[in-house]
Simulated assay, not measured.
Amino acid sequence: MMNTQAKLSLLSVAICMTTFNASAALEIYENDGMSFSADGLVNAFYANSSIEKTDAEGATSERDQSRVRTGFLPNNIGFNFSNQLSDMKIGMRSSFWVSISDADNHRDASPADLGTGSLIDIRQFYGTVSGDWGELLVGKDFGLLNRANILGDELLLGFGQTSDFFGLVDGGNVSFGNISTGYTYPFPKSQITYRSPDLNGFKIAVGLMDPNKVAADSSEELPRAEAELIYSTEMDKVNLKAWVSGATQSSEVDDVKQNQSGVGYGANVKFSGFSFTASGFQTKGLGHIAGLDHLVGDESIKSDGYLLQAAYTLDSNRFVLTYGESEVENTDSILDAKHSNIGIAYFRTIRPGLTAVVEYNQTEADVANSLVGEENNTLSIGAVFTF
């Protein structure tokens, strides 16, 4: 499915992984309708992985690897500005994301090039205009396809899968949560997006995105279009949330037109401390490489997957069970792949803004013509700081 060169090039892309601000903002200034705030997250995990591989010739190999590295969420800091002007509010957000998993990035470099990279990445830089009619966002933000899928992942503050096939065990960036084992990643994109106000529990978002190129010489006459519909309600202390999202774009290479598209969906139910989530996706030509939805290709490449999760929260303790898988099928060849992850996690809120995490994940891969099999057992222990 993926040759060695493609896997190595993936490492330079993966710093743009994972996800969104999940903490409360700290108010720095507020006066006469104008406010400025900041939010931040720092995390680090000790992870021990035991990997067993079987290659296309049937030869097996094993290795164990210990790392101290970033979890699913990169460390980040964000700044928010808003100004209420009569019936209109103007806002801006910028966020900067950093990986700490760069200690061995320069192992093959010359002495003059040694050092830490820090891998600073800007994923959000946008302005908003909002009112009773809704909100218009202009700038760079995460995409809409599978956005709710990843935001609802119970492992958002945890670790998740680290398939060695994708170079994640020794990668200099982040772990993957359930990217490529249940959903695709809504890669940050330049966009113009409208979000509606609450309409009897329904909220809709529609965006025009900078299209993703199939090849350096491909032609995209129209922008990429993405949309998301979310329904939320509460009935007798039961909270229900359901969603569907989609994306479509067209590319032309050597006078041959290709159509890429995808749909994501899911539902979450919460009651009495329990949370149950089921979500899934289907795509053509989108996210078939490591679940990164900005990497597009031939429409004959199809992928689909699902994620099932159960969680229980008791006081300061949260317990999570998770299983997800994704499959890729190329109808023009036999380059098929299947990736799955099963995990159990324990989150303990020690103090507001400080969470301890213990997590175990078993990730498996079956990739035709490249890797017959991989089994990766990873135990991770970490801490997450937020403000």
Rank of each mutant, 00 (worst) to 15 (best):
G291V: 02
W243F: 12
A310L: 15
G273V: 08
D255V: 06
L286C: 03
E299T: 03
A290Q: 04
L295F: 01
L286H: 02
G273R: 10
K237S: 15
L307P: 04
Y231E: 07
D254S: 14
V244H: 06
S300C: 02
D298E: 12
T277M: 08
A227Y: 02
E226K: 10
Q282A: 12
G246P: 15
K237M: 12
A247C: 07
L292D: 08
K284N: 14
A247D: 08
A311T: 09
G266F: 09
V256A: 12
K257L: 08
A310G: 14
D255Q: 13
G287H: 03
S303H: 06
D255Y: 03
S300G: 03
A242T: 15
K302F: 04
G264R: 05
G280K: 05
Q309T: 12
A310C: 08
N259T: 13
L240R: 06
S250R: 11
Q309I: 08
L286M: 12
F281V: 00
V238I: 15
Y265H: 07
N239C: 02
T277D: 05
Q249R: 07
G287Y: 01
A267D: 09
F281S: 04
V256M: 07
K241L: 07
A310S: 13
S261C: 05
H294V: 09
A278R: 09
L292E: 05
G291R: 03
D293Q: 05
S245F: 02
G246R: 06
G273E: 10
D298M: 01
A310H: 07
S275K: 12
N268L: 10
Q309F: 02
V238Q: 13
I301Y: 02
G262V: 01
T233W: 04
S272H: 07
T233D: 15
G285C: 10
L308I: 11
Y231I: 04
T233N: 15
G305C: 06
E299K: 07
S251N: 14
L240F: 14
F276G: 15
S275I: 06
G273C: 07
Q258N: 15
A310M: 12
K241P: 00
